[in-house]
Design a protein around this nucleic acid. Sequence first.
DNA 1: TCGGGCATCAACCGAAGGGTTGATGCCGGG
DNA 2: CCCGGCATCAACCCTTCGGTTGATGCCCGA
Lengths: 217, 217
Amino acid sequence: MTSPVTSPATPIRLLLADDHPVVRAGLRAVLETEPGFEVVADVPTAEEAVELAGRCEVDVVLMDLQFGGRMLGSQATAAITARAGAPRVLVLTTYDTDADILAAIEAGATGYLLKDAPPEELAAAVRTAAAGKSALAPTIALRLMDRMRTPATALSRRETEVLQLVADGLSNAAISKRLFLSQATVKSHLVHIYSKLGVDSRTSAVAAATAKGLIRR
Amino acid sequence: MTSPVTSPATPIRLLLADDHPVVRAGLRAVLETEPGFEVVADVPTAEEAVELAGRCEVDVVLMDLQFGGRMLGSQATAAITARAGAPRVLVLTTYDTDADILAAIEAGATGYLLKDAPPEELAAAVRTAAAGKSALAPTIALRLMDRMRTPATALSRRETEVLQLVADGLSNAAISKRLFLSQATVKSHLVHIYSKLGVDSRTSAVAAATAKGLIRR
DNA sequence: TCGGGCATCAACCGAAGGGTTGATGCCGGG
DNA sequence: CCCGGCATCAACCCTTCGGTTGATGCCCGA
């Protein structure tokens, strides 16, 4: 066979964005040993990721979700994918809460991986993402299925937002000011949340939502 | 001077324990480029860390705190440091809650670092630990100072018990039944908790205590 | 021994949260 | 096109929570 194959004529160009130096080094080490990959750069902030993704020729961005600083990975993802001819964004995070996953997917992420993924899975996901196909970790896929199956558990975006603030310890009055709502609306959201979660108080709602991974910490 | 120094006659032998393959690769990459270090092995579980630390000649163990599996990093740390001639254990984790830090130090950890530490800091901490000296990240040191300075932050056993139930979503009435108390007593405990944490509601108390690592999630 | 922290309880009051009803506007799927 | 879910708000009522005052008993350390 005159196979024209095995030629990585154009390797997959990667941009790594993670605020942990150790993780960046680890991703580099894992991915550079893999054939067909080329790490163009690695950056410690979401802002730099957005900037470099626009300036450089990159196929896939590996993006952390929580950065120490202000900009969130999901915002950066949205900023990157908004442009025409944008690279694919593969979200790579430690957590698998519903809120994070949905935010990332809505922001235009092509895939969602957990950092405890083995190297092969990681490499496979990158190739899948580079091909423009969706790459979800098994855990994530399961969680999404779960969410589909029981729409009762699925809080709306606004409800999640309110509940997150409740979990942060804010009063209804404080939440209403923060979100530019009336207290009546906040209470209304809470009543819906309670019925969806099968609870009857703000504290138990936080406990239930935390257990289900609907909100952060 | 006939200095007998600068000779890395015996490099510092390291054992890496972390359930994230990417992090293990990253630590390897970061530490092996550093002169005077030798990574003996890296393992994905706390159990293997304990076993290898006993079998091999190791100077410093870099230990994660949260493993996917059952055994905790703090338990593994205790098991390793309990033996005579044991290697030093340097805890390396993502989180910096009081509970984690204290558990690690009580377990006999020589140092406590956060994973977002830059490589130089990491290397310096390993050398410090190898020399038998305590190596705490600045953030951690600050937090400990804080705890010492304001013993008010330390909740009593009973108060912690009550607050944990609050975090689980129980009402005062439910808590009083669970603990065989009157509601008055529960409220009394809560008032003390609020003043110690500097908050003014049950939900914000839970948020504050969770942030400080005083209760489990 | 005496003060002080911890744990326990009572009674009280105002405020915040919880629950209901009802209403409006928007949007998307059947 | 109309129904239903989402998001918004108002008015009302009742319960729980939050905060205070005050009191008892225990135990520990100065």
